[in-house]
């Protein structure tokens, strides 16, 4: 692998339901390191015991695991739970307080990206407008903490959408280097997902059949993209992804000179331990395609 290729990591989200039932934090580190990956992504309010106030001993444990398994912290997922209660929404001051809390905790743990998942106010998933003033107020803290705040562009929201335009406009207007876009590769899904347990045809939301974003749409926004979550659902034993067209996506990422992380986000069947095997298959597949692309166009 050339030094300016993709970087490979795993989000602990991949191990949902395994984590805390059949998999410890150290087990997860061992799995990720064994892939030859370098990055670990977490969700703050999932993988930090005692969140948002972990014991100092746990913070020491975290740093010891990073050193032992030679992994670097990548993205830290947080939430702006704007529909705070059934009777009222979050204020700007509350959103600021939550962002400060997560940026500080992410920084203590060594992360470089904070992904706030922002509550929405419409059926087409427009984020609560509280985000803009709240983020503006914490940009200096993010800069001082060497952290980039990056909301995710996630199905059913495509790249060509007013929400993305609004984020880009914010970056241009503020000139900040501490806010960027996170792309979830689920937007490129071009075949339907199988039904989840209990899901029926009547219940199906159409975006689960794939929103088919053209990978070429990545090029115009590439300069704003700081992180990629490599969402996937099932890779078969022939190393074929049954939903995400990696052979169309990865050449575009290379053409855009994207050299950041591909951080696995497995979101398939939750049978115990299945996630471990699926993440391995994804890394084998992505590395194989990248090697082929390097041969064609070094």
């Amino acid at each position: 692998m050339s030094s300016d290729g993709f970087r490979y990591g795993v989000s602990l989200y991949s191990y949902t339901d395994d984590y805390g039932t059949v998999l410890t934090l150290e087990d997860a580190f061992a799995q990720i390191a064994d892939l030859g990956a370098t990055g670990i992504e977490i969700l703050g309010e999932a993988h930090i015991p005692g969140y948002p106030d972990p014991y100092p001993a746990w913070i020491d444990h975290w740093h010891a695991l990073l050193a032992q398994y030679r992994l670097e912290p990548t993205s830290y997922g947080s939430w702006l739970d704007t529909r705070l209660t059934v009777s009222r929404d979050m204020t700007v001051a509350e959103a600021v307080a939550d962002l400060i809390r997560d940026i500080k905790l992410a920084s203590i743990l060594g992360f470089r990206f904070v992904r706030p998942k922002i509550g929405v106010v419409s059926i087409d998933l427009r984020p609560d407008p509280v985000w803009e003033e709240a983020v503006r107020r914490v940009l200096d803290l993010a800069a001082a903490s060497n952290i980039v705040i990056c909301p995710e562009i996630h199905a059913p929201t495509p790249i060509r959408h007013p929400i993305v335009e609004r984020y880009v406009e914010f970056i241009e207007r503020t000139g900040t280097r501490n806010f960027g876009l996170l792309i979830d590769t689920g937007i490129f899904q071009d075949r339907p997902l199988p039904y989840w347990p209990g899901e029926t045809a009547e219940m199906r939301r159409t975006f689960l059949n794939g929103i088919h974003v053209d990978p070429q749409d990545f090029l115009p926004i590439a300069k704003y993209v700081v992180f990629i979550q490599a969402k996937f659902h099932h890779i078969n034993r022939n190393l074929e992804d049954e939903h995400i067209p990696w052979r169309a996506v990865l050449p575009v990422l290379r053409r855009a000179n994207y050299t950041g992380y591909l951080s696995s986000e497995y979101e398939g069947s939750r049978e115990p331990w299945r996630s471990l095997e699926q993440v391995r298959r994804q890394h084998a597949l992505l590395r194989r395609i990248e090697a082929e692309l390097e041969q064609i166009d070094p």
Binding site: L43, A46, G77, D81
Partner: peptide
């Protein structure tokens, strides 16, 4: 009861 979600939550988000 184990929380049926991939993340912890504010109790106010449980109905």
């Amino acid at each position: 009861l184990r929380l049926p979600n991939y993340r912890g939550m504010r109790a106010s988000l449980v109905d």
